[in-house]
Amino acid sequence: MARQEGSVEVDNVEAIIVRIEHKSRKIESLLKQFKPVEALKTALEGAPPKTKDERCKSANWIVVHRAMMAIKDVDGMFTALDPEYYDILMKYLYRGLATGDRPTCDQCLRIHEKLTERAGLGCILRSLSDTVNTV
């Protein structure tokens, strides 16, 4: 029984990885078409829900990171980004800040400032308390 459950988990992980690879290709093509905001939206969609698998989480983070670093005009991004993405974006910003990587942190702090202006402290609290979307 335990072995069966384990294999289900592995299948699930494989499915998530395939989905993330697909997402990654889509983002690359959007970036080539100079649509960074569209790429970011695609990246933020479909975070692996409730998975504890580190491989899925980091694969997904690499994709989101790629799209996030491609954002040059932060103000412009917010005019095109709908508010429903704010909470999940905040969650990824904190993941980015946790890396400690200089350029990533710079970019995350720049977006964080503007995002907090728009979405308030409530957005930070929601990103802290969200247990469904694992990033």
């Binding site: 909470d87 979405a119 308030g120 402290l121 409530g122 957005c123 609290l125 929601r126």
Partner: peptide, 13 residues
């Protein structure tokens, strides 16, 4: 069959 709505706001809880 309840009808639920969530309202997320900008400020502290």
């Amino acid at each position: 069959s309840p009808l639920a709505q969530n309202v997320a706001f900008q400020d502290l809880p």
